[in-house]
Design a protein around this nucleic acid. Sequence first.
DNA 1: CTGCTTGAGCGTTCTTTGAGGGAT
DNA 2: GATCCCTCTTTGAACGCTCAAGCA
Length: 880
Amino acid sequence: MKSNNKKKINKNSQQNNNNGDKPRRITRSSNKKSVDIIRENQPLKFRQLNNQRDEQYQNDEQHQVQSDNEGDWEDGSLNPSTLSPKNQVNYDVKVNDIVNQINGVTVEFDALPESSSKKKRVRRATAEDKEVAELVHKAHLLCLIARGRFIDAACDDPLIQAALLSLLPSHLLDISEVTKLTINSLAPLVTWFHQNFHVKSSSSAEKPFNSALACALEMQGGSPEEVAALSVALFRALNLTTRFVSILDVASLKPEADSDEPPHLDRIKRKDVFSSSTLMVSKIKEEGTSSSSSVINGNKVHETSDQSTGGAQNISKEDNHQKRKGDLEFEMQLQMAMAATSVETSEMKPVESTSCSLSHPLNSLSPFKKLKRIAEESPSSSHVISTAIGSKKVGAPLYWAEVFCNGENLTGKWVHIDAVNSIVDGELKVEALAAACKSSLRYVVAFAGHGAKDVTRRYCAKWYQISPKRIDPGWWDAVLSSLKELESRATGGIPSKEVVGEVGQTSLTHAVTSGKSRLSEKSSVGLGKNKETCSSGSSVYSRSIAEDMELATRALTEPLPTNQQAYRNHPLYVIEKWLSKYQILHPKGPLLGFCSGHAVYPRTCVQTLHTKQRWLREGLQVRLNELPSKVVKSCYKNRKGQVTEVENSAEVASEADIALFGKWQTEMLCLPHAVDGKVPKNERGQVDVWSEKCLPPGTIHLRLPRLVPVAKRLGIDFAPAMVGFEFRNGRSVPVYEGIVVCQEFRETILEAYTEEEQRREEEEKKRDERQAMSRWYQLLSSMVTRQRLNDKYMNNPESETEYNDLKAESKSSRKDTTDVGESTPPIQESTHRTTVHDIDGTDEQYHEHVFLTDDESFVDDSMTQSKKCRCGLSIQVEEL
DNA sequence: CTGCTTGAGCGTTCTTTGAGGGAT
DNA sequence: GATCCCTCTTTGAACGCTCAAGCA
């Protein structure tokens, strides 16, 4: 531990010294150094360290500085940040004092800590932080999926659907009879909905979602989530195949990503959002009721403010600024999900008249000025209703609908419909709008039939920016796999088995055959009665597969990024600049374009290079006459002990270069075949068994211990099998496991090994028994001796001489028993003659009991032996 | 505002095949 | 004298990734 600390300190100190403006280290390695500091009049500067970890280091450093009693010199430094704030007033003096105490010298400073504190200390997230953030991210995702499924189910509510239909003008009802649905045919419906339903304040966060939806229906307005859900319900009521789509505004995968930015930046961002032309949903001001409308990007957007209702939505920044915003969002979302799901089965209560005014605010739009004034308000005094509760990402489109239009393409098309903002087929606008509202488009999930499907690709043009912010795809796919199946069944995407067979999508075949869909009757009514949905499998051969292909195509046709940084980890494209040391482009083409003068190639051209030795581990060898694809400098030529040899030796230095080869330069490993029972060995007389591929032909690796003596005894040629390395005692040590022998000796060796192991086990068993016997004998002898001595001396205090005799006898008795060691105890050899001295102190005559073997008898169950003395005394002895 | 460079911090990867002394 | 066994000590440098700051 101590050495670890020392290491870290040294590293830290080295790094500090590398920087000219960094603190110099006060070291105990030489007092002369400290004197030199004065002589050269070089200033000492200290860096302000803020985090706890560094304080720990500093404490350790101080400790080292002050503990002069230790034998060897250790590096140490002094940092003023460990002083209390009060003490920092006299910082110079105090540090001088401390240093004086240590070294007896004077140190001058030319900088106060304030100047060095200008540079902010970067606190990096630890592995634990990242793990916690990932867990929060996952849990939040699951909650949001649950929430989405619940809303999706609410959209299938027949009462709500019926109520919506009752409001719909009769001429719009005809859309349900359209056989070839197109975007144009949807436009009037969306326009009507947009004119009649608006985003406004809502106290529904604490209500069951069905009740809230009914309330919003009656008010013809509600939260963005409710309005979007109403649009989905309307489309479903009209027999249109519809999904409820949501951006899962989930807590960041990166630790502390939300809380790093200072409050003033948050304020600026929020202000920007409200002054931006992309505002789409309302911001609620605490005082007064207002509504507003604005025209954004050609789309008319209504803004409605209302009395804030407190509760979950009233999130004061002052209250929460200490908390991680992502966690806060997660908690709020969790509360909403819990509140909503807890009453899932409850009856729909009558809508309260107090919260659901019968007056329609359709014609009460306030002027745009009002909105602007709201935006200029201090955020600390305002309360924001966001679709992501507690989120700063106000105005971002988070909920919309997707309607399947079978008349759009050959196979139909899922069409984005944001009825809240009256946007039809605006899938390309979503990312830009979300970005404008500082919202991240990490997960876009479509819900239908209690299922869910990730459709992020449809709305995301720059996947390379999104991908690093998402959870591990394996976990995400596993979570969605069963939900995707439900969604596909509900939207008519699951094809017949024959069709699946044609397409070759075995995974979907599995989805069909293993179908455990619990698609409710209600949802099937909402989704399944659509004529186009029920069209024959031959025409709609597989909606789900077609969509998967569409999304996959988008993934492969991403436009080239315009900045070269984006190519660093881009999944599709690469520029040579960002290749790592062991990578190369092969083949170098096709050229896809240029970015800042750098040629762009497909990522598939990137090949990983290895040394010849490294390829051997893969069971491959570099072909003869192959030239290295790349030569890099060895980073290990100057390792300890080799420095002097390597110095000034260009020849050796050139040998230190590492020749790298690509996989295309290799072939299957061709090792010499075993001949005449001889195992081909390497220069070390062994076989490196990195894998089975590394075994010479005709040999076999026997991974058993203690095989070497067996093979030696049988005279069979073998080689130790080295399976890897491990670091032990500060160095790399080869690890051997078993031996390599020719295949023909396999059975012979294994038989001999089995016999040898049996013999060894028997010997071990005998040895253990002997040890046990010996130890029992020692124990019993000690007890008997002790008792005899007690009987003889302790009950009859006598002279000092006798007492000394007692001690001497006791000592000799112990010695005797010790000397017996592990030899066979005499108790076993003496014709089973066991002696026990009489412990009855009342006997005047000393009697030594003798247990003869003739008087022994076994007690059946307890494995004990009964022994009798001629005097009548009997004892029971456990048989060993 | 965006993109690039640079530096720092942290985690991961790669490296690699003992020597000496005492007991038996 | 040969052989076996135990005990030393507990890598560390380079690289990759990410982020922040500064600059153009």
